[in-house]
């Protein structure tokens, strides 16, 4: 995992901190960016380069909700349903997203493997209800009406 360009990237990160362990969150982001999720083997490799134990890495991975411990759909959709967004109709956005993506339920991947939709807590954009994150794209003011077009773009890989 940490070879070539990725190793170089990690070396740059290590310069920012007085301890190796501090590079753990950035290193895990690198793993996820390269593999799409964080498999056990990658946790062991990360542990090795940062001189911590695999168990320690697992403890950290499981604390932070954005690190995937399982493979997810090609497009990972996070919808905010906390109170302020709920007031503005987030529930209907969730239903529209499940329908348009073909996901049977929240957290499940669609049969074509293209989408996983999950509910998340406040995305820090409550005035732009309902915000969603599709992969790394933050989309504001999503309404049920806008959902089919948004989903269509990601399905066709045109986003």
């Amino acid at each position: 995992m940490f070879e070539g360009a990725v190793r170089k990237q990690l070396d740059e990160v290590l310069k920012k901190y007085p301890t190796k362990q501090a590079a753990l969150l950035p290193a895990l982001w690198m793993v996820q960016q390269n593999k799409g999720w964080i498999p056990d083997e990658a946790m062991s490799e990360t542990a090795e380069v940062l001189d911590v134990t695999s168990a320690y890495v697992k403890g950290v991975v499981t604390f932070y909700t954005m690190y995937h411990q399982h493979p997810v759909g090609e497009n990972f959709v996070q919808v905010c349903t906390t109170s302020p967004c709920n007031l503005c109709g987030a529930e209907d956005v969730v239903s529209a997203l499940l329908e348009a993506t073909g996901c049977a339920a929240l957290g499940e991947t669609s049969p074509d493997g293209k989408f996983t939709v999950i509910e998340v807590e406040c995305l820090g954009a409550c005035g732009f209800a309902t915000p969603i994150l599709v992969n790394d794209d933050f989309i504001e003011d999503v309404t049920p009406k806008k959902v089919p077009e948004i989903v269509g773009k990601y399905r066709d890989g045109k986003a």
């Binding site: 969150l25 982001w29 954005m66 998340v120 807590e121």
Partner: peptide, 20 residues
């Protein structure tokens, strides 16, 4: 960069998070 945890906004949790 954080990784999804409201509690890391609390100042001492934030410091722990920086420490890995």
């Amino acid at each position: 960069r954080g990784a999804g945890a409201y509690i890391c906004g609390e100042e001492t949790a934030l410091m722990n998070s920086i420490e890995g």
